[in-house]
Simulated scan of single mutants.
Amino acid sequence: MKSVKAFAPATVANVSCGFDILGFAIDAMGDYVEITRKEKSGLCVVSIEDDGGKLPWEVEKNTCAVAIQAMLDDYGQQIGMDIALRKGLPLGSGMGSSAASAVAALIAANRLLGDPYERKNLLPFAIAAEKAACGAGHADNVAPSLLGGFVLVRDYHPLDVIKLHVPDGLYCTLLHPHYELKTADSRSVLRDSIPLKHSTIQSGNVAGFIAGLYQEDFELISRSMRDVIAEPYRAVLLPGFYEIREALKTAGALGMGISGSGPTLFALSQGSEKSEAIAKAAKEIYESIGLGVDVYFSSINTIGAYVLEEKE
Rank of each mutant, 00 (worst) to 15 (best):
M1T: 12
M1I: 09
A8V: 09
A10L: 06
A10F: 04
A13W: 03
C17I: 05
G18M: 09
F19A: 08
G23K: 05
A25D: 11
I26A: 10
M29T: 14
M29V: 12
Y32N: 05
V33L: 15
E39H: 13
K40H: 08
V59D: 02
V59W: 04
L72R: 06
L72F: 10
G76T: 10
G76P: 05
D82A: 09
I83P: 02
A84I: 03
L85D: 06
G88E: 07
S93Y: 12
S97M: 07
A99D: 06
A99P: 14
R111N: 07
G114I: 09
G114W: 06
D115M: 09
R119V: 10
N121E: 14
L122V: 00
A126V: 03
I127Q: 07
E130K: 03
A132M: 06
G135D: 04
G137Y: 11
D140I: 00
N141E: 03
L147N: 06
F150D: 11
F150P: 10
D155C: 08
H157D: 14
P158W: 02
K163I: 02
V166F: 05
H178T: 13
E180A: 12
D192N: 13
S199N: 10
Q202P: 08
S203R: 13
G204F: 08
I210A: 09
I210H: 10
Q215L: 11
R223Q: 10
A230T: 02
A230D: 00
E231I: 05
V236S: 12
L237P: 00
L238Y: 04
G240P: 08
F241H: 06
Y242K: 07
Y242A: 04
I244S: 04
R245T: 14
E246V: 06
A247F: 05
T250P: 01
A251E: 00
A251D: 00
A253T: 00
M256A: 04
G257V: 04
I258N: 08
P263D: 09
A267N: 09
L268H: 01
Q270S: 03
Q270W: 02
S272V: 05
S275K: 04
E276A: 12
A282S: 13
K283F: 00
I285G: 05
Y286S: 01
I289N: 11
G290N: 14
L291G: 02
S299D: 15
N301I: 03
A305Y: 07
A305P: 06
Y306F: 15
K311E: 15
E312R: 11
E312K: 12
